[in-house]
Design a protein around this nucleic acid. Structure first.
Length: 326
DNA sequence: CATCAGGGCCCTG
DNA sequence: CAGGGCCCTGAT
């Protein structure tokens, strides 16, 4: 099928709070979706499904860490210009945390020597990720009980078969679909595409979103315990997925209460320098992380992303290599 | 070739 | 609240 051609609707400048680092904010080496974005130093292209339409976005770095400035191009269908371009930028500001009080974060982390190297390497990095709640929940489902390679393959199948291909700013990329997409797709169809038992979860969770009961903006305003129980009521979302959602979707920097077995291996190494055969207990790891206070998950995010960036840049991190298995 | 665990979750007893 | 079962894959 021919990709849908998008037109340039607007170009705007935004000014994130200081300090802000473009590359480490817009490229997270451990995020696994493919073909829906492209990153080069100083530029990120991505698609986004918004207001029931496909958009293309281009972020260009026009500033410095000390004087941040981003130029954002919005590409889409002309009919979408009035209603969507403005609120879309507002949404991007939320998802990438342009307004985060980084100065306060760094002040909080000052007294922890083990964080300093990561802070320095990633000075100005924001937490942030591109997906909607709906998309993220589906990502969570394809992550379950599968190695990375298979998760990537399943998610790509979803975008190719149920999303849309768009062309903008010289790139051809895949774009996400809307809630309700699977209303008329038999579970058997997903099973033939090798989603296995996840076919059922995808169908059920898609139907839950289609009711409109999981409004993302409303969810963001709820107290954290209500956010948690609401998210857990989604079919296919359990304890491992929910805390990813609390951090990435609800921006709950203070929540860190779950460590899965493979993460335990990495954290044992990161926080205590243990090799993979000498695991530090989950309780001990959580106690350590608790000390980072109201930004505790951010502290882990910095250590984690630093590790991946160093790996990405070619530094040999053998024990990580063993664990990724792409 | 067979067996098994995997970046979980749901459901049952 | 513990544990079996689930689709499929790659590792052994």
């Amino acid at each position: 099928m021919q990709p849908k051609q998008l037109l340039l609707l607007s170009v705007q400048e935004v000014f994130p709070t200081f300090p802000f680092d473009f590359d480490t904010t817009f490229f997270k080496p451990d995020h696994f979706t493919t073909d829906d974005h492209v990153f080069e130093t100083g530029t990120r292209w991505q698609t986004i499904r918004w207001c029931g339409r496909s958009f293309g976005l281009v972020f260009r770095n026009k500033g410095t860490v000390e004087q941040p400035k981003i130029e954002i191009e919005v590409w889409g269908e002309p009919a979408a210009k009035e209603m969507c371009a403005g609120c879309l930028l507002h949404e991007m500001s939320y998802r990438y945390n342009f307004d985060l009080d980084t100065v306060s974060v760094y002040k909080t982390f000052e007294k922890f020597p083990e964080l300093q190297l990561s802070m320095k390497n990633l000075y100005g990095m924001r937490p942030g990720q591109p997906s909607s709640l709906y998309e993220y929940v589906i990502i969570g489902i394809v992550l379950q009980n599968a190695a990375v390679r298979r998760s990537i393959s399943m998610f790509r199948t979803l975008l190719i078969d149920y999303g849309e291909q768009v062309s903008f700013a010289g790139k051809e990329l895949l774009c996400m679909f809307d809630p309700g997409r699977f209303a008329n797709v038999p579970e058997e169809e997903l099973r033939t595409k090798k989603f296995g038992y996840r076919a059922r979860s995808i169908k059920r969770v898609d139907a839950q979103f289609a009711t409109g009961e999981y409004d993302e903006e409303q969810l963001r305003e709820l107290p954290v315990d209500e956010q948690k129980s609401k998210l857990l009521s989604l079919y296919g979302v359990g304890p491992a997925t929910v805390w990813y959602l609390l951090f990435d979707i609800c921006h709950r920097w203070e929540i860190f209460e779950h460590i899965s077995p493979w993460e335990q291996k990495l954290y044992s190494q990161l926080f205590f320098g243990k090799d993979l055969d000498h695991l530090v207990s989950v309780g001990k790891l959580l106690a350590k992380i608790k000390k980072y206070g109201k930004y505790k998950h951010l502290a882990v995010h910095y250590l984690w992303e630093d590790l991946w960036w160093r790996h990405q840049k070619g530094e040999e991190i053998e024990w990580l290599e063993k664990e990724i298995r792409t």
